[in-house]
């Protein structure tokens, strides 16, 4: 079942089994968004699960199914903001649980991928709002309309922000990838 069908089915029925299909479609995307926003794997998964709980409880509020993905990332963005606020408020050192071997291996793989990725390096030069729009557009492939819902801004502002973020990245991409840049031409 593709993502669109999974979303449509759940919004139509609200049934638990349809939620499972929806979960399979969108949880990896939300988790990836948090990872690309610089969170650690455990935090990203915890937060992505919180987003899915909100989806389970409140997806009925989405009036138009075409905008579900935009709404989903709006929820994710709000949860991320809440997370940073809580973290700033706490500012304490928590004891870490030891990692099991499987998770440790997965973390290593993902961190290696992220660490060596051009994309992650490029977005690190952007401010958080620019990073959001670039990740949501080029990794999560949100349409302009979905971006407008996710970021709660008009479509004109979406285009303006995308343009400016790309303008900022253009010389960085050119400088960091002299050989690969030719590949993209």
């Amino acid at each position: 079942m593709d993502d669109r069908h999974a979303i449509e089915n759940y919004l139509l029925t609200g049934a638990e089994e349809d939620f499972c299909a929806l979960f399979e479609a969108v949880y990896p995307r939300v988790r990836r968004y948090f990872l690309l926003r610089g969170m650690e794997v455990g935090e990203a998964e915890e937060l992505a699960q919180d987003v899915m709980v909100i989806v389970y409880q409140r997806a009925g509020e989405v009036r138009e199914k075409e905008f579900f993905t935009g709404w989903l990332f709006k929820v994710a963005k709000n949860e991320l903001a809440r997370f940073w606020r809580r973290r700033q408020a706490r500012r304490r050192i928590a004891e870490m649980e030891p990692l099991d071997d499987e998770l440790a291996e997965m973390l290593l793989t993902e961190m290696e991928v992220a660490g060596s990725s051009d994309f992650v390096e490029w977005v690190s030069y952007l401010d958080p709002a620019e990073r959001d729009i670039i990740i949501l557009r080029f990794v999560e492939e949100l349409s302009y309309e979905e971006l407008a819902v996710a970021l709660a801004i008009p479509i004109g502002t979406v285009k303006w922000r995308l343009f400016n973020a790309k303008k900022k990245l253009a010389p960085i991409i050119k400088a960091s990838l002299p050989t690969a840049a030719r590949r993209f031409n």
Binding site: C20, F23, E24, Y27, P28, R31, R32, L35, L36, E45, A48, Q49, M52, E102, M106, E110, V113, A114, S117, D118, F119, V120, W122, I134, R137, F138, V139, E141, K166, L169, A170, I173, K174, L177, A180, A181, R183, F184, N185
Partner: peptide, 28 residues
């Protein structure tokens, strides 16, 4: 060029952060 690079690398990110079934089930 920047746009094309972002499109290509964005697709790479989708593959790089794909989730194993076991982790997906644990999440569910």
């Amino acid at each position: 060029t920047a746009t094309r690079a972002l499109v290509v690398c964005g697709a790479g990110m989708r593959v790089a952060f794909a989730l194993q079934d076991r982790r997906l089930n644990a999440g569910l």
